[in-house]
Design a binder for these strands. Structure first.
Lengths: 187, 187
DNA sequence: CTGTGATGTGTACGGTCGTACAGATGGTGT
DNA sequence: ACACCATCTGTACGACCGTACACATCACAG
């Protein structure tokens, strides 16, 4: 593996791209805007990322790794003594309250997979990552359903601008958890 | 209300914009591409829709009206004898199988509200529209949760490219329905 | 019948974009 | 020491974009 002249150049471009998406949205991301934000010449971004899709793949992967760390750091999700639904609802509240822009950034990159097949494998990693963590507390089918419900609740809050209702989230997440292991659950 | 020289001009532009989004995605929508698709001059699209946001608002509203008609036409959702979760899961299956591109079109416009405040009120109408229909079969909290779960399940299928699993959808939707009217449900 | 305002049309300007490329630069293996 | 190649840089081109504007056209009130 040959060393680089500027070994952090590629990484700095990814970080810059994430800042651009956070500030101006995916529509504002271009080789030029990322280059300007990273303070590197245009040719440098086109060299490291031949297409914008490549840059978005790198950004989404990095965002998801950061997300996974935040989830892992919140130990409550792994503690078998805790109420899984309540833990999830509380964590969503913190996530959304802490910095809604950061959540928007993650979802914008994640949802971009809708029209960009190149992003789909990475998007699949994102859902599987959270589902895998939840699988340590419940069965895989319930875990996948919880991920879907978390996405739906977050999106409802973000898309309509409505405030996050933690009691509501805890209640409905609890219903999915409560049904774990019943008839026809596939497990 | 003054009549128009070409009373259908505006409507034709909206239809063209929806075709453009369906074929090339929101990123491919511009005053020019919509004008070309509608076979009208550029100045006509800029006259009727001062900004692209206005055009997207009109397109999303129209897509939602079409969606509401499809939902209403499927009477099973209103029949109190039917299994609500099974009806919903079957309807999602038909929707996704019939023409996945059409579903992508709807979700792409709907999700665009994430970064475009102008679309948020219309996005809110979309969720409330379906929630209102479901409210005739269950309580409002459960209805809202079902909408969130439907969105999450559809998005998981669309984003990851995975096939739609109707049995799974029926099972987890059923859990949410089964919990209706319990403790702390807010109703 | 005529004025007036809404609607339709064509063209042009300045800006941003992806892409391409030729040359500079400095690691790295031999 | 030398050559090779990954990396870096600046510049240019053609395409597309939103916007603006002057002028044509038509419905309708008076």
């Amino acid at each position: 593996m040959p060393r680089r002249y500027d070994p952090e150049r590629r990484q700095r471009i990814i970080d810059a791209a994430m800042r651009v998406v956070g500030e101006k949205g995916i529509a504002g991301l271009s080789h030029r805007s990322a280059a300007a934000e990273a303070d590197v010449p245009l040719g440098s971004t086109t060299y490291h990322f031949k297409t914008l899709d490549e840059l978005m793949v790198a950004a989404l992967r990095q965002a998801n790794e950061g997300f996974a760390k935040v989830v892992a750091a919140r130990g409550g999700l792994e503690d078998p003594q805790s109420d899984l639904a309540a833990e999830l609802a509380a964590w969503m509240g913190e996530w959304l309250a802490d910095d809604r822009t950061a959540v928007e950034l993650e979802y914008e990159l994640y949802l971009a997979a809708l029209r960009r097949p190149a992003l789909r494998p990475v998007a699949a990693e994102c859902t599987e990552g959270l589902a895998e963590v939840l699988s340590r507390r419940t069965d895989p089918v319930t875990a996948r359903a919880l991920v879907a419900l978390v996405d739906g609740i977050c999106l409802q809050a973000l898309l309509t601008g409505a405030p996050y209702d933690e009691a509501y989230a805890r209640e409905v997440l609890g219903r999915v958890v409560a049904g774990a292991g019943r008839r026809g659950a596939g497990e």
